[in-house]
C-alpha cells in the first residue's frame, strides 16, 4: 500500500470516529440526563454532564417502574411481540408454501391481496380495525396477535413465497413418496430449509411490533394494558408538567434491550434487512 493511501485511510478512520460520536450523541444525551436531577434537565442545562449536585443515580428508573407502570408495559410489549411474531412465522410460512405449490386462481388472488395490503396506510383502517377488534374481543395483549397476523401477513407471505419459489420441488416430492403427509413434509423438510428466511422475517416483524404505537393504542383496552411506546407517549399526553426524568429513564428502558439484542444478533439483523429489501 502506498503511503498516500495509508494516510488517506487513517484520515477516514478519524473522520468516521468523530461522526460516529455525533451519531450516538442523541442516545448518550438521553442516557446521562436520565441520571440527573429533574431540575437540571431543562433546555438550558440539558447538555451539561451530571455533576456532584445533580447526579441522582437510578432514581428516575425506579420512578418509571413504580409510578408509570414501565415494568408491566415491558411485560405486555414482550408478550405481544413474541406471540405475534411466532404466529406470523408459523401461519405465513405455511400459507407461503401453499400459495406457491398449489398455484391456482384463489392462491394468486390472496397473494396479490397481501402485496396490496403492504401499501395501504394504517390510517385507512384504524377506526374500523379497532371496532372489529372490540367486537371480536381481540382488545387484550393475548389475542391482539391475531390482528398482527392479519396486518403483518403481507410482508411475511411475500418473503416466504419468494423463498419457496427457489426451493427445488423434488425434495418435497421425495418426502411425499416416502409416505409423509403434507404436515410432516412441512415440519421435517420445509422448516429446516426455510430457516434463514424465518430469521429475517422474524426480525423485520419484531422491529415493527415492538415499536408499534398506534395499533395497540387504538385496539387495546388502554385502562388495563399499556405497551412501552404507549407509556412514553402518555408522559406528554397528561396535562401540564412532564416528568422529564422518568420519561428519559423509560426511553432508556426501551432502548437498552434493543441495543443488547442488536449487538448479539447483528449479523442476522443486517441479513434480514438486506433480504427483506431484495425481495421487497
Amino acid at each position: 500500500m502506498s503511503t498516500k493511501k495509508k494516510i488517506l485511510n487513517r484520515v477516514a478512520t478519524v473522520f468516521f470516529t468523530v461522526i460516529s460520536f455525533f451519531w450516538m450523541f442523541p442516545i448518550l444525551l438521553i442516557f446521562y440526563n436520565s441520571l440527573k436531577e429533574e431540575t437540571a434537565t431543562g433546555t438550558s442545562t440539558i447538555f451539561k454532564l451530571p455533576g456532584k449536585e445533580t447526579f441522582v443515580g437510578l432514581e428516575h428508573y425506579v420512578e418509571a417502574i413504580n409510578d408509570q407502570g414501565m415494568l408491566s408495559a415491558f411485560g405486555y410489549s414482550f408478550i405481544i411481540s413474541v406471540t405475534s411474531v411466532l404466529l406470523i412465522i408459523i401461519c405465513c410460512s405455511m400459507a407461503g408454501w401453499f400459495i406457491v405449490r398449489v398455484n391456482n386462481r384463489w392462491t394468486k388472488m390472496f397473494y396479490y391481496l397481501c402485496l396490496f395490503s403492504m401499501a395501504v396506510p394504517f390510517q385507512m383502517v384504524m377506526f374500523t380495525l379497532s371496532k372489529t377488534a372490540d367486537t371480536l374481543h381481540l382488545d387484550n395483549p393475548f389475542n391482539i396477535c391475531i390482528i398482527y397476523l392479519g396486518f403483518g401477513a403481507g410482508l411475511a407471505v411475500f418473503m416466504f413465497t419468494g423463498f419457496v419459489k427457489s426451493v427445488p420441488i423434488e425434495i418435497e416430492e421425495a418426502a411425499l413418496i416416502d409416505g409423509c403427509n403434507p404436515l410432516q413434509t412441512y415440519t421435517k423438510v420445509l422448516l429446516p430449509i426455510l430457516r434463514p428466511t424465518i430469521i429475517s422475517t422474524a426480525i423485520l416483524e419484531l422491529m415493527w411490533v415492538w415499536n408499534d404505537y398506534l395499533l395497540p393504542q387504538l385496539v387495546l383496552d388502554t385502562n388495563k394494558y399499556n405497551t412501552i411506546p404507549m407509556v412514553i407517549q402518555r408522559f406528554r399526553g397528561s396535562y401540564g408538567h412532564v416528568a422529564m426524568g422518568a420519561m428519559m429513564a423509560s426511553i432508556m428502558i426501551d432502548i437498552i434491550p434493543i441495543v443488547i439484542v442488536y449487538l448479539i444478533c447483528q449479523k442476522y439483523i443486517i441479513k434480514g434487512v438486506v433480504s427483506g429489501a431484495v425481495k421487497g
Binding site: 401461519c91 405465513c92 405455511m94 400459507a95 408454501w97 401453499f98 400459495i99 392462491t107 390472496f110 391481496l113 397481501c114 395490503s117 395501504v120 385507512m124 383502517v125 374500523t128 380495525l129 372489529t132 371480536l136 381481540l138 391475531i146 390482528i147 398482527y148 397476523l149 392479519g150 396486518f151 401477513a153 403481507g154 407471505v157 403434507p182 404436515l183 412441512y186
Partner: peptide
C-alpha cells in the same frame, strides 16, 4: 390447515376493515 388461519386473520385484520 395451511392457508385458512392466515386468511381469516387477514380478513379480520385488513380486508374487512379496509
Amino acid at each position: 390447515v395451511f392457508v385458512l388461519p392466515t386468511f381469516i386473520a387477514f380478513v379480520i385484520g385488513f380486508l374487512w376493515p379496509f
